[in-house]
Amino acid sequence: MWRELIGRLYSDAEFAAPAPDEEIDQIEQRLGQRVPDELRELLRETSGVQDEYGSGLVWSVQEIIEQNTEFRQSADFAELYASFDQLMFIGDNGGGDQFAFVQAPGERLGDVVVWDHETDERTWVARSLKDYLESRAASDGDDWYKQGSGQ
C-alpha cells in the first residue's frame, strides 16, 4: 500500500529494502516511544524513502534512531533548543528542517509537526503520515509547509 501510494505521489522516489519487525522494534527500545502504526506499516514495506534530491521523505529505521538520539543527547542542542523528547523525527526537507510525530500527552499519536532549525518552532503540518506525504507531494519546493503561513 505505502509503496504504491508513494510511487503515485513521487515518480522519482527511491525505496529501501523492507525492515523486519525486530528492527522496527529497536526504535521503540532505543527511543522509549511507540512507533505509530502508519510508520510501522511503511517501514515494513520500505525502510526509508528519498526524493530525487536525496531528501528523506521518510528515514530508514537506522536513521530514525541515529537522528533522534543525536538530537536528544547533544549538549549543544540542549543549550539552543527546547527538549526533543516528545518528538520522533522521521524525515527532513534537505535544508535543515525536520518532520516528526508528536509523542506528547494529550496529543494524537499520528500528528506530524515540522521543526524549524532556525527558530526552534514546532508547527503542525499533518494529521497522519499519509496526510504528510500527500501534502508534501501536492506543493512545490522544499518549504511546502510554509506556504500560506506568511513566511
Rank of each mutant, 00 (worst) to 15 (best):
I6N: 07
R8S: 10
E52M: 07
I24L: 04
A137V: 06
G110S: 13
Q98T: 13
P105D: 13
G94T: 14
Q50R: 12
Q26E: 15
Q73W: 00
M88Y: 01
Q103E: 15
L9N: 09
P105E: 14
G95W: 09
V49C: 01
G56C: 14
L80R: 14
I65A: 04
D85E: 14
R34Q: 06
I90N: 04
V61S: 01
G7K: 00
D37T: 11
I65Y: 02
V125S: 08
D51G: 09
P18C: 08
N68M: 07
Q151L: 07
E79G: 00
A75G: 12
A75P: 15
T123V: 12
V35D: 06
E79C: 03
D131N: 05
Q98V: 06
L109F: 08
I27M: 11
G94S: 06
D92M: 02
R136L: 07
V112K: 05
D111K: 04
Q103C: 12
I6H: 06
R34A: 12
V114E: 03
F89T: 08
D92E: 06
L9T: 01
I65H: 10
R34H: 14
S60V: 00
V102T: 13
V61I: 00
L133N: 09
D51Q: 12
P36H: 03
A126I: 11
S83W: 00
D21Q: 13
G106C: 02
F77L: 11
I24N: 05
M1F: 04
M1S: 06
G56M: 04
W124N: 05
Q98A: 13
Q86F: 02
Q26V: 08
S55I: 10
S139K: 07
G150R: 11
G7F: 00
W2Q: 08
V102S: 07
T119H: 06
V113W: 02
R108F: 12
I64V: 12
E22K: 10
S47R: 02
K130G: 07
G54S: 04
G96F: 06
F15N: 07
R34I: 13
P18F: 14
I65E: 03
E79V: 05
L129G: 06
E63D: 14
E28T: 11
Q73C: 02
D76A: 11
R122P: 08
D143I: 14
L39Y: 09
